[in-house]
Design a protein around this nucleic acid. Sequence first.
DNA 1: CGGAATGTTGATTATATTCAACTGTTGTGG
DNA 2: CCACAACAGTTGAATATAATCAACATTCCG
Lengths: 242, 242
Amino acid sequence: MQQELRAPAYTTLGPVRDRRLLERVVSGLPGFSQLARHDLAEVVAHAWLMEARRGQAVVKCGERIPGVIGLGSGSAKLTLRRPNGEERIVRLLGAGDSFGLAATVLDRPCPVDVVALASSMIAVVPPMPVQRLAERDARFSLAVARALAERFLDLVDELRSTEQLSGLQRLARYLQSLLRGEDGVARLPATKTNIAARLGVKKETLSRLLHALAERRVIEVRGRDVAVLDRTGLAALAGDEV
Amino acid sequence: MQQELRAPAYTTLGPVRDRRLLERVVSGLPGFSQLARHDLAEVVAHAWLMEARRGQAVVKCGERIPGVIGLGSGSAKLTLRRPNGEERIVRLLGAGDSFGLAATVLDRPCPVDVVALASSMIAVVPPMPVQRLAERDARFSLAVARALAERFLDLVDELRSTEQLSGLQRLARYLQSLLRGEDGVARLPATKTNIAARLGVKKETLSRLLHALAERRVIEVRGRDVAVLDRTGLAALAGDEV
DNA sequence: CGGAATGTTGATTATATTCAACTGTTGTGG
DNA sequence: CCACAACAGTTGAATATAATCAACATTCCG
């Protein structure tokens, strides 16, 4: 990641001129969708947009978080790093996804690194308007609480699978989750190295696991596209009980 | 506390009413401490106490959660189970601890098994008064949101350590956390089998790890008591950077 | 096009699990 | 209060899973 060192962490776009885009992204944030017109306007007035290039760190672990972050376009990863460079991806963000609500509500340091995986348009809602709104609007703070509760339960589930499933099972489940709504072809949303980090294995291991599945005629891999040939077989490997 | 265990006011299992104890436990729940007198009274009016014996399942994974659960006395574990019986303890609860806020706010099935590790007095606050209060009281729902955000960040940290640290490092950190405020002796809050499950290893592995630490003269083990002889050495093993 | 990033493959190693046999501890009912 | 069964913990050997190391192939942007 030489790139990260040379380039600035991010580039702020021109003053909040793109109010429409900002409004669209902010109103898509968890908890913000039910806001009254003028409340939304106030939040948007404090928020801003920024652009991040592939490989750029949007927020670094341990730094003060600039606010709730929503992805207007592009993609990013939330990662836990060890000093040596080993990384575990907690979540992959696509357009419309967001993160940072917990840290923003408490005004705590960011618990993860956030790195753009492609050129991305990012909306930032700083802590102040969020906290002020939460203090006076029960509907809003309840919506925030619900959003946080949702994420919390997701994370418990994450802990369950990383702790109790083998790499093969985690991969099988991950492929299943990518298939939701798709016909039979899952497109990996990131490089295999990143998918591996998302699954909590090394890229070499992911390579072997994909091969193992291909060998059993459960999938067929072509670059980032994974065709699922045998959904039942995949479900069996995922550990779905009878 | 011992007193309560030896001579509990109520020896019957199942719902028990004791307004004073209920008030004490409920007002200690995260988010409930700032409640106005009459709001607290209303919540307490809907809540109840129950007693659980060692080994009894208080809530089973997947069942509807009866509400936010606070431990008046005793201890319990929150565990993730695999069908085969393998278990991972997410959190150990002692007197004053609580759980279930996320699932209660969303009225979702309980994501873990809750099992008493000793005779325990348990307060249950059902979803209804929590949700009603949250809808009309911004202070309260914000407090709930903060409590959830707190737990969320804790869980991220948990994920970080289980994913990126070796068993030895996790044990070292766990011992450090038990030392907070203590002189130099940590008392394990549960059986070694349960501690092992808490750390994400098997009991055989924990036994060997404790031996490894003892061999290096970092600790001395006598039953559930672990004397830390070398805090610096422990910190080094825990991976605390320079 | 060229060079860096990404991905594959094989050999080796580390960490923790599993299996098995055994000892120690505890709580309960006779 | 003791006997005894159930549970808790220890230890050693064999094993499994994934990491690490190293060399090479491929892809993809810039």
